[in-house]
Design a protein around this nucleic acid. Structure first.
Length: 880
DNA sequence: CTATGTAAACAAC
DNA sequence: GTTGTTTACATAG
């Protein structure tokens, strides 16, 4: 991450970059008219806000697009875009002509032309989403059919016409469907037109982070010095490579469409973010802020140093932000803060005391703010990346001779957060006391609030995670025993196989059975038509958990994935953040969850066919905890869904939560995986067929029905949980009620595992899995009831294999057992049972063994006594 | 973890 | 076959 020259950096450092260090990216920017026009022209409708920003148009009031002044709004209408587009199009037209002529004069082409032509045939650095938006905006009426979009892209980006695989069109199709930005104009049966959603009409061209290179289109790197293989940990010192490739981009990009106050959390001053970026990369190295005298002298830049990236000060004592570059850095210039022979980049603010920020012989990137005391913040001989904020005391935050990446925030005391001689990746936040997290050769940590000391070695960590030990040799996660199934989001090589152990499976089941859990379902879904405002009101009503801790406990429902179509996997949306500034303090940077109050309004994209909702996580909070902890700061995976303010959520919880409407507990790929110590649990994944039209799904579906508003808010105590609803004066959704009454559905032990229904290639390619091979993407389905008991008319091999065939209560079923006419057939039947279903069953209920033993002792006739012994032995063998 | 790219199943026409 | 929807999975950052 830290070593990729980005267009951003390169572009700004044009004056510094020598030709020998120019990458293909910058070549494209400077020599390709098409790209240069898009990326750098401030007049282009597509110009990035990154480049476009100045002190005027990025003042807080103009950042969020909802509050854009009329002038800017008009700026981005399709009509205006059209005008700007002409410039762009004429350029690309010339490009095309150039391409054509060039191909006919191949031999005589001069090198410059050749390189330019090849640049034109390179894959453009725009995402499909960008391309589609460009296409649609270029049309007069802002509408285009799929075919027109394809043609436009082919015309203006020859790569797709001449070099791309045919499947790129599929990707365009995919993007059209996927993104809420694109809306299909209803009416025409074939070749419907697509347009941009209102909110997406303002076109934000993102800066390409890196040149996209596919395996097929990969071109050898122009850079003469580059060799294939590992990237150096330390950057080359001959130009100012500030590792902002992604981070800076993200910040800047976010600033353009998030709430105006967003920047305050990341940056100390009220100056626009963009101007900070400019400041960081400008050649001006004068500090902007009044530093204490002794500090200021200590960071006096040496003449030979490339640049001081930025200086920011705040309300507190000290902030040091400095970048000393490479070999030429003058020892002593940062003496009191450690001499850096590499790059130190510190962003952020402190309202407290910071003793040392970044003393490094490598790269230290500290992002975040401390409102408390930070003694050492990144002391590294190599790469330390600290992202996050401490609001209290941090003694050491990343002290490493290797790579430390700390992401997250501590709100309390952290003594050591990543002290490593290898790679430490700390993700997460500690809200409590952390003494030491991760002193190891290779640890990735997800911290929990109560960690006092993390494992010190790989071995000890592996002891916590026996399943991972064999897989990777590295520990991917977890500082305390936690059961994780399925794939870890590591590299494919490290990725956890889908297989898991029975032990783990049982542990998970015990978690599910024993934990507090709650269920919820939307009981009121309403789709309002119309392009202007498509709103769907979703009301979640909750049932409190078993074993509720106290009455004043409450739940917030957190919807992991609430896409325009509620697709479980439409995770590609970002959100418009309407949260007030106060709310952001409570937002976590972990997870992509939108926290919804039990009742809230969401704007969604209308889907004529089906809606899905899934992956609802229930968080059990106490009154003292933040009401909204799962929101990601400034972004989310949701697009077009206005988030509720913290205040609203809070009020909603107080006012409307409480009606108990449980729903089937059906595991999805995250449910057991997410059973956590904090009592939260993801429950249920359902498909909801709004209009009962979709017969595609083969899964059991439960229709969402409106519940009459008859139930007063009510909190159910744990002792009441299993009572009849009538006793509780509640009226349940009938379908829910019937589901709940079916113990086979509620009880995961009666569930089988099947892959989810719907489209997707796994339907035909993925075999079913046994519980031994649990896949995250599988579901637990209710095992269908089978005909009971032994059937004499069937051959032994064809007997239904049912646990029920062995009576749990022999006394009451004596007759049926004594009537068994054919010992050998029954033997075979029992044998089948043992071979298949019994092991699992017995592991769940060992008392079964006693029952059978009792029965065998008292009730079998003489001829059965011989086989009895072996049966008992078999049972024992299977059980233990 | 997010954003993006790719392949493909499947439905409806 | 085309268009659209959805899923799985890969990968960079």
């Amino acid at each position: 991450m830290t070593c990729h020259p980005s267009p951003l950096v390169q572009g700004v450092f044009t004056n510094q970059a020598t030709s020998s260090t120019i990458s293909r990216t910058s070549l494209s920017m400077t020599e390709t008219p098409m790209l240069a026009n898009i990326v750098t022209s401030p007049d282009s409708g597509f110009s990035s806000p990154t480049w476009h920003c100045n002190a005027t148009d990025s003042t807080p009031n103009t950042v969020g697009h909802k509050s854009l002044p009329r002038r800017l709004n008009q700026d981005f209408t399709a009509v205006a875009a059209q005008i700007r587009l002409e410039n762009f199009l004429s350029t690309t037209k010339r490009n095309q002509d150039f391409l054509r002529s060039d191909s006919s004069t191949e031999s005589g082409a001069d090198p410059h032309q050749l390189s330019t032509r090849s640049a034109l045939l390179e894959r453009p650095m725009y995402s499909y989403m960008d391309l589609i938006k460009m296409a649609i905006l270029s049309s007069k009426d802002g509408e285009m059919t799929f075919q027109e979009i394809i043609s436009w892209i082919e015309t203006h980006f020859p790569f797709f016409k001449y070099k791309a695989k045919e499947s790129w069109k599929n990707s365009v199709r995919h993007n059209l469907s996927l993104h809420a930005d694109f809306m299909k104009i209803e009416g025409k049966k074939k070749g419907a037109k697509w347009k941009l959603a209102d909110y997406a009409r303002k076109y934000h061209m993102k800066l390409p982070k890196t040149q996209y290179v596919t395996k097929k289109t990969q071109v050898p790197n122009v850079s003469t010095n580059s060799k294939k293989g590992l990237k150096p940990i330390l950057p080359k010192a001959n130009f100012a490579l500030v590792p902002l490739t992604s981070i800076g981009h993200q910040i800047l990009q976010s600033s353009s469409h998030l709430s105006p106050s967003f920047g305050h959390n990341l940056l100390p001053s009220s100056r626009p973010i963009a101007s900070l970026g400019h400041q960081m990369f400008s050649s001006s190295i004068q500090p902007m802020s009044p530093f204490p005298q002794q500090i200021q002298s200590s960071i006096r830049p040496s003449a030979s140093v490339g640049s001081i990236a930025s200086l920011e000060s705040l309300t507190g004592s000290v902030v040091l932000v400095g970048s000393t570059v490479g070999q030429k850095s003058s020892p002593g210039s940062l003496a009191s803060h450690g001499s850096s022979s590499g790059v130190v980049t510190t962003f952020g603010s402190s309202s407290g005391v910071v003793t040392a920020l970044g003393s490094s012989s490598g790269v230290v990137t500290s992002l975040g703010s401390s409102s408390g005391v930070v003694t050492t913040f990144g002391s590294s001989s190599r790469v330390v990346t600290s992202l996050g904020s401490s609001s209290r005391v941090v003694t050491t935050f990343g002290s490493s001779s290797g790579v430390v990446t700390s992401l997250g925030s501590s709100s309390r005391v952290v003594t050591t957060f990543g002290s490593s001689s290898g790679v430490v990746t700390s993700l997460g936040s500690s809200s409590g006391v952390v003494t030491a997290l991760g002193s190891s050769d290779s640890i990735s940590l997800l911290t929990s609030p109560t960690v006092t000391k993390a494992p010190q070695s790989q071995e000890s960590v592996s002891a916590h995670r026996p399943n991972f030990k064999q897989q990777t040799g590295k520990v991917s996660s977890v500082s305390h025993p936690r059961i994780i199934l399925g794939k870890s989001r590591k590299s494919s090589r490290q990725r956890q196989k889908v297989t898991t152990s029975q032990t783990s499976f049982d542990n998970r089941k015990s978690l599910l059975n024993g934990s507090k859990y709650a269920a919820l379902e939307p009981i009121d879904i309403q789709i309002l038509d119309g392009d202007s405002k498509q709103e769907t009101k979703i009301v979640f009503h909750l049932k409190t958990a078993k074993n509720s801790l106290s009455e004043n406990q409450f739940f917030t429902s957190s919807v992991d994935v609430l896409s325009p179509t509620f697709s479980p996997h439409s995770e590609r949306y970002s959100v418009e953040n309407n949260l007030p500034n106060e709310g952001q303090k409570n937002m976590s940077n972990t997870g992509n969850r939108l926290t919804l109050a039990p009742a809230c309004n969401c704007r969604i994209k209308k889907s004529s066919k089906q809606m899905y909702y899934s992956e609802r996580r229930l968080c059990c909070n106490t009154e003292n905890e933040p009401k909204c902890k799962k929101l990601k700061l400034g972004e989310s995976s949701l697009k077009g869904l206005p988030l509720m303010s913290i205040e609203n959520i809070s009020n909603s919880i107080k006012d409307t939560h409480e009606i108990a409407t449980p729903v089937v507990l059906k595991e999805n790929r995250n449910s057991l995986n997410s059973a956590r110590n904090d009592g939260s649990l993801i429950v249920s994944s359902k498909q909801v067929d709004i209009e009962q039209k979709n017969t595609r799904s083969r899964r059991k579906q439960i229709l969402v029905q409106r519940i009459p508003d008859v139930s007063p808010p009510k909190i159910i105590s744990s002792s009441d949980y299993n009572k009849q609803e009538t006793d509780l004066n509640m009226i349940l959704n009938p379908s829910t009620s019937s589901v709940l009454s079916n113990e086979r559905i509620i009880n995961p032990e009666h569930c089988s595992i099947t892959p989810p229904a719907g489209g997707g290639r796994f339907m035909s390619s993925t075999p079913k899995h046994s519980p031994m091979e649990y896949r995250m993407t599988d579901f637990l389905d209710v095992t269908p009831d089978q005909p009971v008991s032994f059937n004499q008319s069937l051959s032994p091999q064809n007997q239904p294999i049912l646990l029920n065939d062995i009576p749990l209560n022999p006394q009451s079923q004596q007759n049926s057992f004594n009537d068994i006419p054919n010992d050998s057939a029954y033997n075979q039947h029992i044998s089948n049972v043992l071979d298949t279903s019994l092991p699992d069953a017995i592991s769940l209920d060992l008392s079964l063994l006693d029952s059978i033993e009792t029965y065998l002792n008292g009730n079998l006739n003489e001829s059965f006594q011989t086989s009895r012994f072996s049966l008992t032995q078999d049972l024992t063998k299977h059980c233990f």
